[in-house]
């Protein structure tokens, strides 16, 4: 027998290069934002950024200190957080229930899916005049705007998750004669959970987005109000405090959802690991 390769050319087996993204970085989601802040600080320090257009990071920090000292920041933050919280509290269950009703019955889909798709196609801002006429300019209107904005992504992604549940699992449920309630509990809800959680990530982002819109209209409290007031006095530092705050709130609520996601979907072994 002939050896195609002489023995002396044998090489050490190499550790195979992994195609996965690698081990998760600690607090990896902070790296990008920190880089951005570093560039901003460098720009301000070298004078490339005019403080009348963009205050330096340290000015923003001292302004934040002042706003905290006189209590304005806490008060406005509390109003904003409350609006978003209530908007989510109404929007998430509503979106989930609509998705379940529409995903589990043809009648539900026929009645619900169309209106939600239409709502999705209409820009939220276009609904504002009507909502103001109906609900006035008080808290009710603001929370409704946020809740309506939240319903859409929750509905879309939960419904999609429901509809993409593998038909083979439905077949299994039939052969083991699951009751309808058990079918929903054991197959439908866990199967739709990844979709729902994706919807949640869009929902929290959307909620902060619609908060800004709602707060810029005739508010007397909230981060948006604080920023709008700063605009009339030309205080870029206060505006920046607001922007950074919105950014941080969005970032942390997204991180919170992702944490829940990792816990709830621990059965999955995916690329994200």
């Amino acid at each position: 027998m002939l050896l195609a390769t002489p023995p002396d050319t044998l090489v050490q087996a190499r550790a195979r290069r992994s195609l996965r993204p690698g081990r998760p970085l600690r607090l990896g989601f902070l790296y990008g934002p920190l880089l951005l802040v570093a560039a901003w600080a460098a720009g301000s320090a070298t004078g490339l950024l005019d403080p009348r257009f963009l205050s330096a990071p340290w000015t923003v920090v001292t302004t934040t200190g002042e706003l905290i000292a006189n209590g304005r920041l806490q008060d406005n933050l509390a109003s904003s957080v409350q609006r978003v919280g209530l908007g989510l509290a109404f929007g998430i269950p509503a979106g989930t229930l609509l998705a379940l009703a529409s995903g589990l019955s043809r009648w539900g889909e026929a009645l619900i899916d169309g209106p939600v798709q239409i709502k999705r196609a209409v820009p939220a801002l276009a609904l504002m005049p009507l909502l103001i006429l109906w609900l006035g300019i008080g808290e009710g209107m603001k929370i409704t705007v946020i809740a309506l904005g939240v319903v859409v992504p929750i509905y879309i992604h939960t419904h999609n998750g429901l509809r993409s549940i593998d038909g083979r699992y439905v077949e299994l449920a039939e052969t083991v004669e699951l009751s309808r309630a058990a079918f929903i509990r054991k197959v439908v809800l866990p199967g739709a959970l990844p979709g729902f959680l994706l919807g949640m990530r869009f929902a929290v982002t959307t909620a902060w987005l619609f908060l800004v819109v709602a707060e810029l209209i005739n508010s007397t409290s909230g981060i948006g109000y604080m920023m709008d007031l700063a605009r009339t006095y030309g205080q870029t530092d206060v505006i920046l405090v607001g922007i950074v705050l919105y950014g941080l709130l969005g970032l942390f609520s997204d991180a919170a959802v992702r944490l829940v996601e990792r816990r709830a979907l621990s059965w999955r072994r995916t690329l994200a690991g």
């Binding site: 083979r168 077949e171 299994l172 866990p190 979907l265 059965w267």
Partner: peptide, 10 residues
């Protein structure tokens, strides 16, 4: 079935 068909989330 030919596949084990276990619910991955259970």
């Amino acid at each position: 079935f030919q596949d084990a068909r276990l619910l991955p989330w259970q």
